[in-house]
């Protein structure tokens, strides 16, 4: 079965039709998706800015990352569920949209960036936890994360316009 066929089956499925045709549910899911930006991106950008040396400089890096991590994960879960519902409401159109494709690639890259950061330089965070001497790799990971997630938001917003239908 080709990917296109899978998307078409999804699009014809009961849940897809139900979300698409709902009057209140769709806007509520969309609003949830947008407002959860505050929780997810708000938390990640707080520690990214700390890594970049731009905010909370008197707070140890490990405090910022570890204490906000569960909240960012909670935000991410809501993002994925609400985003999944939005995708499900029109999978063929979404998958066809260049902004959606770029968005998915950027999310993957942001994930890889976070994974590498946690597996490498964050492992020896005790050595650079306090103060302004942030290793270049950590600083770079923070800036990269800020840029990648900003592109994700921009692509997500642009995707909603019917420029490619």
């Amino acid at each position: 079965m080709s990917l296109q066929a899978v998307l078409e089956v999804l699009e014809a499925s009961g849940p897809s039709v139900a979300i698409r045709e709902s009057i209140l549910f769709y806007p509520l899911v969309e609003t949830t998706h947008v407002l959860t930006l505050c929780l997810f991106l708000g938390m990640t950008s707080t520690w990214d800015l700390r890594l970049a040396g731009c905010a909370l400089r008197s707070v140890p890096v490990s405090h910022v990352v570890n204490r906000l991590f569960p909240w960012a994960i909670a935000g991410f879960v809501v993002m994925v569920i609400s985003g999944g519902m939005l995708f499900l409401s029109g999978p063929v159109r979404a998958a066809d949209n260049p902004f959606f494709r770029v968005k998915m690639v950027m999310i993957a890259l942001a994930g890889i960036n976070a994974f590498v950061f946690h597996r490498t330089v964050f492992r020896w965070v005790e050595e650079w936890d306090e103060g302004d001497e942030i290793p270049r790799r950590a600083r770079l990971a923070g800036i990269l994360s800020l840029v990648l997630w900003a592109i994700v938001v921009i692509c997500g917003r642009m995707q909603a316009y019917n420029w490619f239908d």
């Binding site: 505050c38 708000g42 707080t46």
Partner: peptide
């Protein structure tokens, strides 16, 4: 919005 929201939330 993400910036303000995060700020207020923290």
């Amino acid at each position: 919005l993400a910036m303000i929201g995060g700020n207020i939330l923290v």
